[in-house]
Design a protein around this nucleic acid. Structure first.
Lengths: 200, 200
DNA sequence: GATATAGTCAACACCATGTTCAGTATTTCA
DNA sequence: TGAAATACTGAACATGGTGTTGACTATATC
């Protein structure tokens, strides 16, 4: 995220950064559909016309922010699929990246966020798993349910983590996810006062 | 969902139903932000003004559809919290409800859906768990991570299920979720070709 | 320091929105 | 079944955010 192509003019970098900050800030206050370009550029302290130099509308702007985040995550996952394993080390790196960008990541995954981003993130990791594990189409259906459980489960866990401003280290979170995936009992049943109380 | 208060005029029921169908249909084709009231009422074959008799805008309409779904699910969960356990029977009932309303549920949970709905659904179940299991505030943090993993994991599993038009029975799905929650190994590791390939 | 490029400011047409009102159609209930 | 109530239609209207343009100013690059 930080090291963008230096080809862009300093002013361009500044403008985009200010707009991103303003959008992040506004999305903490209201739904994206209720944010106007005027409001956004006012907060970024710039002319409304400047916005249109780079983005078609606010939704497209959000999408382009998502593009950058996903591209960066893709880099971490290893550009050439199948080369790097999805291990605890890699989970740590991903969580660290999320932590570093927790402002915008938090917004995107919050109730004011974008379900599309969750899906794109999900697919990114999913495709890597498919390649690494060489899932055939016959096994795909079976794979899909469990995969989705784990993937969205992780997303949920990360949401709770960001929501608390990432108090635990990325390493600890990666270890927790690792433990769960290694087959460790998900600690929910432990909360039940009695066996009879239910199973969830 | 089906048995609404009969107090409403038949025309009103008809209008709302047509609008809901039209919205569901349109959301399969495009994002909600790109749907105009004109487009919606055209598809529902009615006057544009009629829409405003019941809804302020399209987003508010979606919200009111969500309200009804969540209210119905709340009924299934038992109105008086803490009275009914969250067991396999109840999971089956919930999945059956989702299956019956899979058209709109599918849209709401799809990549064109509403992240807010996921959060509301999550909170609904969460609050019930908190009450039943008598989670104290000290234990809440610990509980939160695991709970979120399971809750969003279930959501992900359901998404995959709806996405395939619910081929498995609600009973079978409830059993699968039950198995996972009972501590059964989540079947992802099984897909790995070798132990070295990674842990996710 | 010269040139290129980015940002500002004001003005503009456009179009979906949300509201209104009079007239018509349908439902409800006595 | 008929009358009163209520819902829907169709057209008109003001409004406000949108996206674009062109001339001018400010800033970065080399």
């Amino acid at each position: 995220m930080e090291n963008k192509p230096r080809s862009e003019d300093r002013r361009v970098r500044r403008t985009k950064k200010l707009l991103t900050q303003a959008l992040t800030s506004l999305m903490k206050e209201k739904q994206i559909k209720d944010i106007t370009v005027k409001e956004l550029t006012d907060r970024a302290d710039m002319n409304r016309g400047t916005f249109y130099l780079y983005y078609r509308d606010i939704f497209q702007m959000l999408e382009s922010i998502e593009d950058e985040l996903l591209e960066a995550l893709n880099q971490i996952l290893g550009e050439k699929l199948g080369e790097t394993p999805l291990n605890e080390q890699m989970l740590t790196e991903m969580f660290e990246f999320i932590r570093e960008n927790r402002e915008i990541m938090g917004v995107l995954m919050s109730f004011r966020g974008d379900i599309c981003f969750l899906y794109r993130l999900n697919r990114l990791i999913r495709e890597k798993c498919m390649t690494i594990w060489d899932i055939t189409t016959e096994r795909e259906s079976e794979f899909n349910y469990d995969y989705n459980f784990v993937a969205f489960g992780c997303a949920g866990l990360v949401m709770a983590w960001i929501d608390r401003s990432c108090p635990e280290t990325s390493e600890k979170l990666a270890r927790r996810v690792n433990d769960i995936l290694q087959g460790q009992r998900i600690g929910v049943k432990a909360y039940s006062r009695s066996e009879k109380a239910g199973i969830i």
